[in-house]
Amino acid sequence: MADEQKIESPSYDDIISLIGSKFGDKVKFRQSTKKNVRSINEKRRIFMDADREVILDLAYFLRDKLNFEQASMVTGVDWVDHMQVVYHITNYFNSITVEIVVNIPADDLHVASVAPVWGGANWHERETYELFGIIFDGHPKLERLLTPKSYEFFPFRKSYKLRGSQ
């Protein structure tokens, strides 16, 4: 991807058309229905669903071509029948944030790590691993970070009930 020209501050429409032409139906865009949220009205949020296989390619494409320099956040979500990893990636020049949602089947909790692409995702992925049990393939150091190393369960899963909950 090094031969391609990097666009420092791609516009909202450029991002959608470039990703759409490169990844086709592997990436689906969503429209927000919110009317009063300023950042959405001023087109600073892009929402998309991506297939699990393309997430690493998409990450490199976002960083090297569209100049998304920072991974704000990597979140795990437990939907009981499947899990989700949500990425929020920011471009510092136009402050557009893309939200990428990746669905992961419950019987195969693997997804490619984006920590080699953005160093800022490193600890977020470690946290998601220890709290949800999602394994990030290719992560430089996938160890427990916040919880004790002796834990053998994943406390943020919905199957883990807190005391006092029904």
């Binding site: 300023r38 950042s39 600073r44 320099e69 920072q70 991974a71 510092y92 402050s95 160093g119 800022g120």
Partner: peptide, 29 residues
């Protein structure tokens, strides 16, 4: 600057590295 952005450092630590970004100005709320 590049390393700072890649490592996800934000706030005054980031602006000390030359990244010109502030949520208050660039993504106002």
């Amino acid at each position: 600057r590049e390393e700072c952005a890649n490592l996800g450092i934000t706030g005054p630590a980031m602006r000390g590295c030359g990244v010109d970004y502030d949520v208050r100005r660039d993504d106002p709320y």
